[in-house]
Design a protein around this nucleic acid. Structure first.
Lengths: 345, 345
DNA sequence: TTGTACGCGTTATCAC
DNA sequence: GTGATAACGCGTACAA
């Protein structure tokens, strides 16, 4: 790996001049410019980013932390592809690192990115509590953005959407179509999103004076397999059911599969609705309906703002957002072809 | 951000001592160790990775380049989760950067990682030709591993599987169950994988003396939507069909959906088989069968070897693999419940 | 066991 | 326009 010094010698100039040519800052005569370019070519020179970033204290790259337990889901793909697309027009690099599976490891991932002098870090948290994140934001000079959690202190550092609201809408939608015996499959209950979605379901039932039957609520773990298990539990409990709200599409698919195996037609006898609207979901209808989670809009928004501030040169952790929290409503996305409902068993 | 020097002063020692404590190399008395740790704590000190890596010329991290056009697929999740899991026990960081959508950008992504002094770079190429990659490997001192392409020159730097073979098996499987009118939906034909899968299909037909009917071969683009379009084309052509081989699961799902809409039962009237075995695929059977792509095994294998050589301290681009190319057979993964086949229309 | 001093490859601030 | 030279924060012989 040749260095700048070697290039400088080859071109018969000083390091400083080579640096000027590369950065475009400062005056260099066209003649020497020419020579420097030639020398760079000949030497096969590549600037050492470590040295550059160390000296300049920036990096032109943005870090993203996501837990690898989320890598399986289509949800994750959405986050990543959105972030990458947004950033690529901007000449900045997106660096993803693994948040692994504990709060401690998530914190380390953030620090790693910070230690690498990323211009900013975006985290889609899975284990860190909002208080811990508030604390981390306090600790560091660099801007840290949190997606999908409402922080207590640094409200301008987070962006999230209304999971409770969208779950409420989904449930309400079913109720208005005549369903009253609606089961609910939760996500992993250590996730705020899972809790919010459950709350939305309950709120809708309450509003329509439908009693909450705990037998109709089963715990899932976000995976298709846990959707299968959930339907098994429901089936054993023998309660009447005409519709199922699954806390994500993966579980909805698992539930659908199990109902099929039990000889129960979907959506003929039981309607299912999921969340997140994974790419293949639309192709599974009419069996499955899905509520779109605006995750891509959130990521998109975060990056837009981050970029505009970085480019504007006035990024600091104090003024990331002028507005406070951004909440978007979710949208019901699939057609509900089945209006009838029947007793189970 | 406090520096090592500040910590040293606070602890009343020199930088070197602090460095020794941190690295564990060299002798330090327990007493001073104690003081240093205390000072680190007090100062909230974090080592600057840029400086550390610059000085030591390593980074304890491994780079991965994948094109963001692949981020949507479940295939990508598989790659990433596998890589992350493998690396996490090892204390090394995985850094993902976007290969975007051209050979040039893929090359830049590799260079970026190299310039960041990653210990090794793994690329899952989409645009770079094998010759270009051979050339890049020549150019740099650091080890670069290529997944899913068979290189011409540096065969020890790549790992791939037998896409043609698995496609052959899938087709043969259908033939042996009595199918003769088998349609094929290709992937994007600028992808070697797509070409190989098509070749496997053709080989199976040839071997059983079934003529290749170009009307039964339609081009897809890996997406569910293109699976829908493909079935539309097939339907219009009015040829007899009893089974469809789709070059991936996403397209198989799209195809399934379209057949449903046309009132054609799957797999009652037409069997479908896909590839890659995405996480939700098993839950879509018996409608859909899928051939597992051993991508996770490939990634796993690459990382295993990389790690053992990094830890062994004898990693160089000359001796990455002792064995040459690693090819694994793919496995038929889903049950084929339907054995009957009928005419279409 | 600990400290000194130099090197890593840049950027940036001066003079010239 | 261009060239020294001091940072940047850390590793590491070598000396003490």
């Amino acid at each position: 790996m040749s260095t700048m010094l070697e290039v400088a010698k080859k071109a018969g100039v000083s390091k400083a001049t080579v640096s000027r040519v590369l950065s475009g800052k400062g005056y260099v005569s066209d003649a020497t410019k020419e020579q420097v370019y030639k020398a760079i070519e000949e030497a096969g020179y590549r600037p050492n980013l470590l040295a550059r970033n160390l000296a300049s204290n920036k990096s032109e790259c943005i870090g993203l932390v996501v837990t690898n337990t989320l890598y399986n889901g289509s949800y994750f793909s959405e986050i990543l592809s959105q972030a990458a697309k947004k950033l690529e027009d901007n000449g900045r690099q997106l660096i993803l690192v693994d948040g692994k599976h504990s709060a401690q490891e998530e914190r380390e991932a953030i620090q790693f990115l910070l230690d690498l002098r990323c211009d900013a870090v975006i985290i889609y948290p899975r284990f860190l509590s909002i208080d811990e994140m508030d604390e981390i934001i306090d600790q560091y000079k660099q801007p840290i953005m949190v997606v999908n959690r409402k922080l207590r202190k640094h409200q301008s550092h987070c962006i999230c959407c209304d999971h409770k609201g969208s779950s409420y809408l989904a449930t309400k939608h079913l109720i208005e179509r005549g369903h009253r015996d609606i089961a609910f499959i939760t996500g992993s209950m250590d996730s705020p999103t899972a809790i919010e979605r459950l709350a939305g379901y309950k709120e809708a039932l309450n509003q329509y004076d439908i009693g909450i039957n705990d037998n109709l609520i089963v715990q899932g773990k976000w995976t298709p397999g846990s959707g299968v298990s959930a339907v098994e539990s429901l089936y054993q409990r023998q309660d009447k059911i005409s519709a199922i709200v699954a806390s994500n599409d993966e579980m909805a698919i698992g539930a659908m599969k199990k109902l099929n195996d039990l000889g129960i037609s979907v959506p003929g006898e039981i309607s299912i609705i999921g969340f997140d609207n994974i790419p293949t979901a639309p192709y599974l209808s009419p069996a499955l309906s899905s509520v779109k989670d605006p995750v891509s809009e959130m990521i998109s928004e975060v990056i837009n703002r981050l970029i505009s501030m970085l480019d504007g040169g006035y990024l600091s952790k104090e003024n990331i957002f002028t507005s406070d929290l951004l909440v978007r409503n979710s949208v019901i996305d699939g057609p509900y072809k089945s209006k009838k409902w029947v007793d189970k068993h």
